[in-house]
Measured scan of single mutants.
Amino acid sequence: MAAGGDHGSPDSYRSPLASRYASPEMCFVFSDRYKFRTWRQLWLWLAEAEQTLGLPITDEQIQEMKSNLENIDFKMAAEEEKRLRHDVMAHVHTFGHCCPKAAGIIHLGATSCYVGDNTDLIILRNALDLLLPKLARVISRLADFAKERASLPTLGFTHFQPAQLTTVGKRCCLWIQDLCMDLQNLKRVRDDLRFRGVKGTTGTQASFLQLFEGDDHKVEQLDKMVTEKAGFKRAFIITGQTYTRKVDIEVLSVLASLGASVHKICTDIRLLANLKEMEEPFEKQQIGSSAMPYKRNPMRSERCCSLARHLMTLVMDPLQTASVQWFERTLDDSANRRICLAEAFLTADTILNTLQNISEGLVVYPKVIERRIRQELPFMATENIIMAMVKAGGSRQDCHEKIRVLSQQAASVVKQEGGDNDLIERIQVDAYFSPIHSQLDHLLDPSSFTGRASQQVQRFLEEEVYPLLKPYESVMKVKAELCL
């Protein structure tokens, strides 16, 4: 049975990233139509530049190519590739079939990587351009969430054990800070992308030097003109047959890092959902379990974690691919890159769409948070109580021993009897502590235990987050809708 299948058929496997999760716009960027249309555009740009620099290419040939950029006979191309065992030459023939007058000058002087690699770089750039505003929107939604809850005390956790208090907004800023680093890295790697350009079979530009009869300047002009037509500021000066596969490492490393950030955020949300302090959106008709109707599973956060793990592992592909590119190139890269580049971007696209949807509907339960604080705060307040007693004339050592005994009794009630923490009640009825009984409410005010959390939130948002989001103001209103 021949390899390949009808990918629109229910009898043929289709990647869930495309069929179930990723956005239509990201799927289109990695589609065959987008790819092969870009090949034709690159052939047109090459012909236009070659004509401008004096090669015998007519206006009629150029116009014929322009008129057929979208006229792609995919069936013919597939048949040609089956016959020739070469995808680029299959599309040269297919393009030439609908451009008979231009057929002889299509791909003039070029090698397969002229269309293959340059198209990949265009796709990487455009895919990054799709991700950047999506990530900015996630940051914006979380920034709104953090600002609104900047002063809401909550129990902090280290080692997932109760620690000092923080605020809900401050905790959210930990998430935002990681995503801001990801946004900066995505922008950097996007701006650092260079075009492969017009380089020939081993990167020496020998074929173009021959076409222009040894004119170095025209060869350099050709490279520059096509690079500018493709919208790049610069091209690699040095290439082998391909652009260095280190570029793929750079791009997928940034995406993998984004995956790590999203995994951490969504894990926190899942843990908070278990504590009943916070939940992701839950639709009115949504079913959490087929057997347990009360369940409210954090399905979206779980999906993000599941896909983020996949995204983090994909960076190993370009690392290994770059390491086995012998001399000017081997074909070890080809099949692998067809999979890992598309999957990385479709996965990143999915987790950003999902995280935006989550961040637009996060639900906080202040009463649950308050109750958990009441359970733990008495123990945390013991040092403040000791200091207040010393100020009232008591002995630190005597007070410490009193607190120690009462704390152990209260802990026994919590752990052995399943009761509430009654340390404060014990202190309130103990005559030894009568000098500070009137101060206990103040000493137990949760806001006095959150330090500068709310001020940190305000400063972080104003100095770091809002300036970073400013270039994306025009796209901030787009909502994230999930079908599944």
Results as ranks from 00 to 15, higher is better:
I369F: 01
L482M: 15
Y294L: 03
F212P: 09
K415T: 13
F145P: 02
F379R: 04
G109A: 06
A143N: 09
V465I: 15
S474P: 14
V364M: 04
P100N: 12
Y114E: 12
A102P: 04
Q177R: 09
R20K: 11
M65G: 15
S407C: 12
C173D: 02
E64H: 07
Y466R: 13
K134W: 13
S334D: 04
C399F: 04
E148S: 12
A260T: 11
P100K: 06
E148H: 10
Q210D: 09
P133Q: 11
D398W: 11
G200C: 07
V189P: 11
F160L: 08
E79R: 14
P318G: 12
R459S: 12
E473I: 09
N384S: 07
V92H: 01
V254N: 15
F208A: 09
R329C: 03
L55E: 08
D117N: 01
S207F: 09
H442D: 15
D430T: 15
I237S: 11
Y294K: 04
K75Q: 12
D317Q: 14
D268F: 04
I427K: 06
H442S: 13
I265Q: 14
S454W: 06
R83V: 10
E328M: 03
F95W: 12
K134N: 13
E220Q: 05
Q285M: 15
K224A: 07
R303N: 05
Y34L: 06
S359Q: 14
V251P: 02
L362I: 03
K479C: 12
G4H: 14
T158I: 00
A77H: 14
C304V: 07
I57K: 05
I269Y: 02
T201M: 00
R338V: 00
R196G: 09
G200L: 03
E302D: 02
C305W: 01
P435W: 00
F449A: 06
L124W: 11
F232W: 07
A453C: 12
C180M: 08
F195R: 03
I57W: 04
F345T: 13
D73T: 04
E343D: 08
Q241A: 01
V88C: 15
Y365L: 06
T450N: 02
L272Y: 02
L311W: 00
D120H: 08
D6K: 10
A22H: 08
E64M: 07
D6I: 14
E79M: 10
V324M: 07
A143W: 04
I351N: 00
L132A: 09
A260C: 04
E60T: 04
H97L: 11
E417W: 11
E280V: 00
R194I: 05
C266H: 09
D11L: 06
G5K: 14
M89Q: 03
L131V: 05
L341K: 15
Q375K: 08
K101W: 15
L331Y: 13
I269G: 01
K233G: 10
G4N: 13
V364C: 15
I237A: 07
S434Y: 14
D422N: 11
A335V: 08
Y34R: 04
S112Y: 03
P293S: 06
S23P: 10
K170V: 02
R309G: 04
F36M: 14
D268I: 00
S9R: 12
A143P: 00
Q439S: 04
E280K: 05
E370A: 02
D398K: 14
L44E: 04
D445A: 13
S474Q: 14
N274E: 07
E250L: 11
T204F: 01
A150P: 04
E464W: 12
C180L: 13
L132P: 09
L55R: 07
K229S: 14
A77E: 09
Q41R: 15
E228Q: 03
Q241K: 02
T382I: 12
V138F: 14
V254D: 07
A273C: 12
F195W: 10
R190I: 09
E401A: 14
F36H: 15
T167V: 02
K187I: 15
T111F: 02
E25Q: 09
S9F: 11
H86W: 02
S12E: 15
G361P: 07
K75H: 01
T354Y: 06
L355T: 06
F449W: 08
G156E: 02
G8Y: 12
E360K: 03
A136F: 15
Q221A: 10
H7V: 12
Y114A: 00
C304K: 00
Q61R: 05
K367E: 11
E25M: 09
T158W: 03
R337C: 09
R270P: 10
E277N: 01
R270L: 04
D178A: 03
L84Y: 09
Q439F: 07
S257V: 09
R374D: 10
P56F: 08
C99R: 03
M389V: 14
L377M: 01
